[in-house]
Design a binder for these strands. Structure first.
Lengths: 117, 117
DNA sequence: TCCCGGTATTCAGTCTTGCTATGTACCGGT
DNA sequence: ACCGGTACATAGCAAGACTGAATACCGGGA
């Protein structure tokens, strides 16, 4: 994907990851590969780990180290109450933005005189 | 609005402004007040001007100075062919992102066992 | 044995972009 | 003369995504 995707992910990627964790706990590598499966083929691994560090420091997730059968121990993240609140706020913000952008899209596809001022 | 909105605007605000210009040409001050009317009450004026400078330098818009009856001359921006392409790409990127995020929202609202692995 | 590839995490440095704060300039009304 | 609304510009800051590299654990093949 292009630069546009990168910039558009700012602010939304955090919500995406919180939403993934809301479904069930997961560790960084797992999140990255699940995102790739879902079509986000170009999200850098380092980006996800950095994001996880941030949300952990903000206390939005609980962390548990779990030994892996093939590699270093996994850090399994699970959403806690704070994270749930931030996720809820994310959905509100997203809804607001998506609604307005859809309006704009509609305005272009179906232009009309605007009598309201 | 909160920090989430700010971060989410990164990457989308450019598309929003291009979309506004696709409807009809406009100048900076006008774009700002139109955005405020549409609910983006906290978008800083400086942000819009900086964005307009960027898209002008990238050649996405044509500019025309028009004298104003009440203030300094207006810089009226109109979308050109390049800008149209970038806007089209924006809609594709937005569509991709919105689709996946809606999927995630749906997955949380309607959780189910996933038998696929 | 030694190396390689897959798993798993971390970090320093860079770039883009929105915000803050401020400054400039033009105009009409009081 | 001053003030408020119109209109544009910019320097410095903060946040977040990317690049590239390093570290570490494990199994299998030459």
């Amino acid at each position: 994907m292009g630069k546009q995707t990168t910039e558009m992910l700012k602010g939304t990627l955090e919500g995406i990851v919180l939403a993934i964790l809301a479904v069930r706990p997961a560790y960084g590598y797992e999140i990255t590969s699940r995102l790739r499966e879902q079509g986000f083929v170009d999200i850098a691994e380092g980006t996800i780990y950095a994001l996880l560090v941030r949300i952990e420091q903000r206390g939005l997730v609980d962390v548990q180290k779990v030994p892996s059968e093939k590699g270093p121990p996994r850090k399994v993240y699970s959403l806690n109450a704070s994270g749930g609140e931030v996720l809820a706020e994310f959905w509100r913000t997203w809804g607001f933005l998506a609604e307005r952008i859809e309006q704009l899209h509609h305005a272009i596809e179906h232009p009309r005189e605007e009598g309201e001022h």
